[in-house]
Amino acid sequence: MNPNSQPNVDRQTLHKIAQLARLDIAATEEEAVLSDLNQILDWVEKLKELDTEGVEPLRFMSGEMNNLREDIPNNALNKSAALKLAPKADQDHILVPKVLNND
């Protein structure tokens, strides 16, 4: 990316991001959300001032490798406990606002 580029989220991008996160942004909220998003990006932009010439990208915070577990079942969650934690459930399922599938 061009280090001098100015981040700017426009309305179209805002609605695309909102759609991907299944959020409804009301017209009255647009300005405030746009301003917040751009502020966040401006702040991140500041990091670009650092000279990272020759520095490998840091993808993982710990230098750990192969943090693996053996294939042994454990720590299962009891069904009723799990359903109780859900915002809405019946005796078997977690319920979510209806997703219109392929109709």
Partner: peptide
Amino acid sequence: SSHPDEGAYSWVDY
């Protein structure tokens, strides 16, 4: 997830 005809909810089984 399944989507019963009746009601306002979809059912999710994890």
